[in-house]
Design a protein around this nucleic acid. Structure first.
Length: 180
DNA sequence: GACAGATGAAGGA
DNA sequence: TCCTTCATCTGTC
């Protein structure tokens, strides 16, 4: 995270409620920069953000509600990744192109980027995704259809996939987690 | 430059 | 079918 300090600028953290709990969205003047899962240790939530930022928070809240209801998200605020290498940002752009309810493998993402064999690096980029759910890293599975991993926990990944209507996970969700 | 990691593929039990 | 091992690629320190 070498560029972290240099990239830190004015930002606002706002709580965003949805059926999974209370996410915390971080905005900069350019747009949404981070989204933290419910239960994350996030300090400094503020409510005195500018009107525009509060409007973005409402868009995020509605988008989360739509995705969790199995519907495509409507309008989103601009995504302003505060950090990330060119490779990571390329991975995150690919993730945004995955339709709701569809899944893809780490290897396929790597191939799309013209780097077949870089599946492991794609996994690392997914783990560094600052805006989970809206940048759908949960739709990426290992090539053998196993879950792989998820920054918010595998149970969260299963929950998200199930809500989007991915059949095999709608079924798995009803069973005790094995080894998760 | 060394190390770690959310992988993938192959081989064996 | 499951588990183990090894090769590969990228990011971080």
């Amino acid at each position: 995270m070498k560029n972290r300090i240099a990239s830190e600028k004015m930002s606002w953290r706002l709580p965003v409620r949805c059926s999974l709990g209370e996410f915390v969205a971080t905005f900069t003047a350019e747009g949404l920069s981070e989204l933290d899962f419910p239960g994350s240790q996030v300090e400094g939530a503020v409510t005195n953000a500018p009107q525009e930022v509060q409007g973005w928070a409402k868009l995020v809240e509605r988008a989360l509600a739509d995705v969790l209801a199995g519907k495509p998200p409507g309008a989103l605020p601009p995504l302003a990744f505060a950090r990330g290498t060119d490779f990571q940002k390329a991975v995150w752009r690919e993730l945004q192109g995955i339709p709701l309810g569809k899944t893809i493998s780490y290897g396929e993402i790597a191939a799309r980027l013209g780097k077949p064999g870089a599946a492991r690096a794609v996994g690392a980029a997914c783990g560094a995704n600052p805006i989970p759910v809206l940048v759908p890293c949960h739709r990426v599975l290992a090539s053998n259809r196993k879950l792989g991993g998820f920054s918010g926990g595998l149970s969260m990944k299963i929950e998200l996939l199930a809500r989007e209507g991915v059949r095999e996970f709608a079924r798995v969700r009803e069973l005790p987690l094995r080894g998760a």
